[in-house]
């Protein structure tokens, strides 16, 4: 350890404080240090006058500079909206199909990332933040599409919604499956038969003996929309019944419920809430999630 040279006692100024013979050296602070301390106090007072600080009964003082994080955000959003305006114009004019071919353009990257933001704001509530969907809400990552999986199909679905009563274009994305049981279109026995037949198309039926009779019921009542082989029809939004994907569940009870009461899920139309560029962006985003055609 370093040895301090002994200090001569009379060299050192003390504060004059002495406790049981222990004296305190006087090591005075530099004066500028004290002035810096006073300066920080004055700065602190000035700060509370310039910025929101002192609490009141309803709200704090707003400060002379009228600074607010909320206003800052609004300003920033405006700045970015202005900066993105040319890109949005380009997005509104671009041939959407070209996005499937060319994905290394700047516009595509913009559409995808802004589409992701639109998705998380407006779509994630039903389809899930990872787009995995849920019972009654289609999974957007798989390759099964009720109304078609091309980027234009997706864009149309977003624009007019599904079974949306307010749309002017009611020839699009509107169809209705009858409630075969509830409306007494089929006997209870027939419903059981057809459910077993539908199950046999993609897997094992609950009761194999009813399959044959079910096929007859199917061809008479269901094949017009769902197709002879259950392949579905995206023009009518009729689901593919022969694949591994079930929107409302593929077990006996779920399918029986679907046939008996029908489902007819809905989705809002977004053309009155989102801009054309936003809808195109989110269509681009959804298309590249892994199921786009």
């Amino acid at each position: 350890m370093a040895k301090q040279p002994e200090k001569k006692k009379d060299d050192v100024e003390t504060t004059g404080h002495s406790w049981d013979g222990i004296e305190e050296y006087n090591n005075p602070l530099p004066k500028w240090w004290v002035w810096v301390f006073y300066a920080t106090i004055i700065w602190g007072i000035g700060y509370t006058i310039a910025y929101p600080a002192w609490p009141g009964i309803n709200q704090a003082t707003s400060g002379l500079l009228n600074w607010s994080t909320r206003a800052n955000v609004a300003e920033e959003i405006e700045t970015f909206a202005e900066r993105n305006a040319p890109k949005n114009t380009a997005l509104e004019e671009v041939e959407l199909a070209s996005f499937v071919e060319e994905t290394d353009t700047e516009l595509y990257a913009y559409a995808r990332s802004s589409g992701a933001a639109v998705y998380q704001t407006w779509c994630a509530q039903c389809h899930g933040s990872g787009a995995a969907g849920g019972v009654g809400y289609p999974n957007l990552q798989d390759d099964d599409w009720l109304w078609g999986g091309t980027i234009e199909d997706i864009h149309t679905t977003i624009r007019v919604g599904v079974r949306n009563p307010d749309t002017d274009e009611d020839y699009l994305r509107v169809s209705e499956m009858p409630a075969f049981g509830a409306d007494e279109l089929l006997e209870e026995e027939q419903v059981e038969q057809v459910v077993n037949y539908v199950m046999s198309m993609s897997g094992e039926p609950k009761d194999a003996s009813l399959v044959e009779a079910g096929q007859e019921v199917y061809l008479d009542n269901c094949a017009a929309c769902h197709g002879d082989d259950g392949q579905g029809d995206t023009f009518q939004g009729a689901p593919n019944l022969a694949d591994a994907i079930w929107l409302y569940g593929g077990d006996y009870a779920s399918i029986r419920e679907t046939v008996w009461n029908s489902r007819n899920g809905v989705m809002p139309q977004w053309q009155d809430r989102l801009t054309e560029a936003q809808m195109r962006a989110v269509a681009t985003y959804v298309h590249q999630l892994g199921g786009g055609e």
Binding site: A132, N139, Q141, A244, I245
Partner: peptide, 18 residues
């Protein structure tokens, strides 16, 4: 690995991870 969802069932029954 994407964990939301952990896997996706495709129409042919195959399982896909992202």
């Amino acid at each position: 690995p994407v964990r939301n969802p952990t896997y996706v069932t495709m129409s042919d029954g195959s399982i896909r991870n992202t």
